[in-house]
Computed example of a mutant assay.
Amino acid sequence: MSEKEMNKIDRYTNRFWDLWEIKSIFVTALVALLPLALYLLGFLGLIRENTGSLITYASALVTINGVFLTLIVTLKQSQIFERLRSFFPILYSYLYDGLKGQIKSCIIFILINLVIALVGPVSNKVISSIGMYIWSYFIINISFGAFYTLRIITRLASSKIEKRSVLK
């Protein structure tokens, strides 16, 4: 890929994450329509059989977010957070609350998958579509949320702190 193409990809990626930072609920709700559409078209028929794998995935994300949360709490007085406070005074609480929200979403997703595993197939298409949309919302939320959290943490740890952030 050329440098011009890479810059274009970076620009669109940054726009997406800026939008995620401002309106993550709406972005998640919109992107969650894709798995719902795949389900309604018959391409996601093995969710019930894979609930164990999905629970493992969410558990791994809970662990990662828990480690990040623990690091934030323990390293409150470190150089990273001194730099964080100087650039973005409210980012510490934003990051802390975001990690707590991600952990909550992962736990809810685990509970949803437990219900899917325990309850038999639902023949009512409306109820199953509503359930599938909720499931889709949470899998998108925890997946994109994990990428976003990783992006924030790595940018804090490196010297690449952007001043363009919406959180100024």
Rank of each mutant, 00 (worst) to 15 (best):
L75Q: 10
K76R: 11
Y57W: 03
I142H: 09
F16A: 07
I110Q: 03
I108H: 01
L44D: 04
S93P: 02
I80T: 09
G131V: 00
F87P: 06
A60G: 11
F68T: 03
I127N: 04
L38F: 08
W135F: 01
R83A: 05
I22N: 15
I72G: 11
S128M: 01
F138A: 02
D97F: 06
M132T: 04
S165Y: 06
Q79A: 09
K168I: 14
L91S: 06
L75V: 00
V73G: 07
M1Q: 03
A37C: 10
G52D: 08
F43H: 07
N113E: 03
S105W: 00
A58V: 04
T154W: 11
A157E: 11
F81G: 02
V62R: 00
I22C: 15
G52V: 07
I112V: 13
T51D: 04
L167T: 12
S93R: 10
G98F: 14
S136Q: 03
L46W: 08
I161M: 06
V67T: 09
L91A: 07
Y12L: 08
L54P: 13
I152S: 07
Q79F: 05
F138K: 02
L150M: 14
G120H: 05
L38A: 12
R48S: 12
K8C: 11
I25R: 01
Y92H: 11
K168M: 13
D18R: 05
I116F: 02
E21L: 11
Y137W: 08
Y39V: 02
T70F: 06
Y148P: 14
P121G: 10
I72T: 08
S129Q: 00
T51E: 04
S159Y: 11
L99G: 11
K23F: 15
L44F: 04
R11V: 06
L34E: 09
K8W: 10
T28L: 02
R11M: 06
A146P: 01
A146M: 14
G45S: 14
N124W: 09
P89K: 13
M132R: 00
R15S: 15
I64N: 00
A58T: 03
